[in-house]
Computed example of a mutant assay.
Amino acid sequence: TIDGPGGAGKSTAARGLAARLGYFYLDTGATFRAVALKARELGVSLEDAQSLGQIARESEIRFGGDHNERIFLDGEDVSEAIRTANVTEAASRIAIFPEVRGPLMALWKRLGKDGGVVLEGRDTGTVVFPDAGVKFFLVAEESVRAGRRYLERAQEPGVTEKRVGEELRERDRADQARQHAPLMRAPDAIEVDTTGLGPEETLNRLELLARARITNRQSSQS
């Protein structure tokens, strides 16, 4: 599992690590985004937990692509559509509802029940798979995280680095303060500060640590 705040490098690291290990890649945050996207399209209030839960239960959400990096909602590839600022903000708001989290967590557990999965999110190592064999918690300085997010969204009309930083701080506060499954480091997670690391350096470090932990677990079980 790979958890941490936005902009710490979770997605890039998780995709790369899954590819190197030959594992399935599962972006839990993308499933919240998919539900948020559908809610916005249907005009459902982001405060209506029951209706949002119904969307989560009844929607077909699946992953595909070469490394399972694409997400499909009711048969449509929404991989790009879920990455807009509006959907990002909506996903953060609906993630607090157990009515939404319950069905999505059931999906994650079903996909990861046999192992061989790299999950990324904000509570995958504390709530979703607390017994995962290897857990990482990525962190980085706020200014660095904001800069990364700004580069991802620089082509959006009206976006500024200041605005991205403000949105990031608000998301951090919401994730850490929510009652159900708040963002926090699992006691047995390996913390990796990516502030001064590039994507390849981060991936190399995680792969080295993951392979060592996997080898140790296999040795102790033999």
Rank of each mutant, 00 (worst) to 15 (best):
A56G: 08
L203P: 06
D27Y: 02
E58T: 14
R211W: 01
T12G: 06
A140G: 03
K162M: 07
L119Y: 09
V164N: 09
K113C: 11
R217C: 02
L17R: 07
A174N: 11
D123E: 15
E166P: 01
A212D: 13
N68K: 10
R149N: 07
L17P: 08
E142I: 05
E207R: 04
R148F: 08
D188H: 04
G116P: 10
A91M: 06
V44S: 03
R62V: 11
A154W: 02
K113A: 13
G4D: 09
T126I: 06
G115T: 12
N86D: 15
P187I: 14
I2E: 01
V118D: 05
E89G: 08
A95H: 02
A85R: 14
G53F: 04
V118C: 09
V78L: 04
R217H: 11
G198K: 03
E76C: 08
L26D: 10
E80P: 04
V128L: 14
R178T: 03
L208C: 11
R122G: 01
R110P: 00
G158H: 06
N204D: 15
T12H: 01
E80N: 11
V127C: 06
R93G: 05
A174R: 15
A140E: 00
V44Y: 01
V144P: 02
Y150L: 02
F136G: 05
G75T: 04
Q176S: 15
F24V: 12
L73Q: 03
R163N: 11
A18R: 01
D123W: 05
R145D: 00
G112D: 11
V87G: 09
A81K: 09
I2Q: 00
E200C: 00
G9A: 01
F63T: 15
